[in-house]
Amino acid sequence: MAGRNGTATIGAATGGAQITFLEAIRQAMFEEMERDPTVLLMGEDVGVYGGAFKTSEGLLERFGWERVIDTPISESAIIGAACGMSYVGLRPICEMQFIDFIVCAFNQITNFVAKGHYLWNAPAPIVIRGPSGGGVHGGPFHSANPEMYFVHTPGLKVIYPSTPYDAKGLLKAAVRDNNPVLFFEHKFLYRRIKGEVPADDYTVPIGKAEVRREGKHLTILSYAAMMHTSLEAADALAQEGIEAEVIDLRTLLPLDEETILNSVKNTNKCLVVHEDTKTGGIAGEIAAILFEKAFQDLDGPLVRVTALDTPVPYAPTLEEYFLPNAKKVFAAAKELARY
């Protein structure tokens, strides 16, 4: 993959078209709404404007005002209403204009939507999606990775893809799922990453990680933008004779423990790279799983390369220092490989 400023190409090569990450998301929504009249889109500026990032461009023209709903700036109302819609058999997609704002609806999501099936047998097939992540100088309120607030909530599913192929296939799977699914779209990838997607309808299973690069010396677990960073680091490591296995988690809840354990049992070393802050990040949970289920297989400590435990800072110098990058991953992996 090219550096952070270039456009990379990745994905399943199946003879389909090369599209951006953003286009993959738009296509997924378009095709699902075309396929199923119970699928609606709701959010701030998703209609006339086509979404702040243009992920819903053309949807209003195609599907009309009843299916593409511009809402007031009321995240709780959006999620609450989506929940109600799902109770009458609809499958609404809610856009958070930036995923940072999802916490404005925290109560609706964690208390109402997530608990319904367990408590009173009420599934809520809704998708909550939006642009997340840093590296684009969005500052502390437009760069967040709030996935772990929700990974801690039983009843939700949490997806965070890294390629156009997965973004499209997983978003379609999310729409068809009977549970509330949170779908994080790393905005750094929106227009920088291109990949092939098949011309025909397909889905990618929720809850399955994917081995992006095979290797025997250590396992690097990552997701979203950091998956590309990890692959970049793995290329550099290979130059030094260290073969890293890179796994794209894709779904954070439910986590694909099997794929993680299979790889670590083979490489005996594990590095987790995420853009989320360190404390309470998924790396800690993975560490616990490895200690519980693969303790005897580990030849070295579990290493974390993550963002700092601070808000996402605004100035480019600060943000660059805050975020993990290929260099940091490379250094940490090299150190781990020595065990």
């Binding site: 959006i78 209403a81 929940c83 819609m85 109770y87 609706q108």
Partner: peptide
Amino acid sequence: PVMTGIAIG
């Protein structure tokens, strides 16, 4: 909002 969603839906 949930009942609003039911009404709209």
